[in-house]
């Protein structure tokens, strides 16, 4: 494996081409090289979900993904959320589903993928998705309430 690679990555719609150490994780690339600090270091071994981003639309743990693995892909971080995630953000805000907020960006990206797949996701699907993200503050009640509200609205518009 070479020491350095040239990485081409589209992040939140912006194309980047950088020379990086081959060992650089996607999380460090986003945080250190691009200054996108919304994705968090929680455990650095893929246990907690605080680093969750979307790669090609699919949630991925950036702390255990090498940047080199996703060369040429499209990455979405919490900084790249837009109209699609607006209802989710509004519901989290309304229900105070974020206490300290350290886990929240990862949870928003996990759920945004779920609701993209199924705007009216049922409780089992919501819980299955949230199983990938640890929140130590809320006991999940307000997070579930926010997600259910988004799902209920998704059900109406279908």
């Amino acid at each position: 494996m070479p020491d350095e690679i040239v990485l081409t990555l589209t992040v939140n719609g912006d194309k980047h081409r950088r020379l990086i150490p081959a060992s650089r994780t996607l999380l460090d690339f986003l945080r250190e090289d691009l200054g996108l600090t919304g994705s968090k270091h929680g455990c650095d071994v893929g246990d907690c979900g605080a680093c969750t981003v979307r790669v090609g639309g699919v949630p991925r743990l950036a702390c255990i993904t090498l940047a080199a693995e996703v060369d040429g892909e499209e990455v979405q971080t919490i900084e790249g959320i837009g109209a699609a995630e607006a209802p989710l953000v509004a519901a989290f805000d309304k229900h105070v589903a974020s206490q300290c907020g350290y886990c929240t960006p990862g949870i928003i990206l996990s759920l945004s993928h779920l609701f993209e797949q199924d705007p009216a996701a049922d409780d089992a699907a919501i819980r299955e998705t949230l199983g990938s993200n640890i929140c130590r503050c809320t006991g999940y009640t307000k997070i579930l309430a926010a997600a259910r509200e988004v799902a209920a609205r998704g059900g109406q518009t279908r």
Binding site: T37, G38, S39, K40, T77, I78, E79, I81, V89, F92, D93, V96, A97, S98, C100, G101, T104, P105, I108
Partner: peptide
């Protein structure tokens, strides 16, 4: 929360 959105959107 007045600081809610900032925490939610990272």
């Amino acid at each position: 929360k007045i600081d809610g959105r900032a925490r939610i959107v990272g």
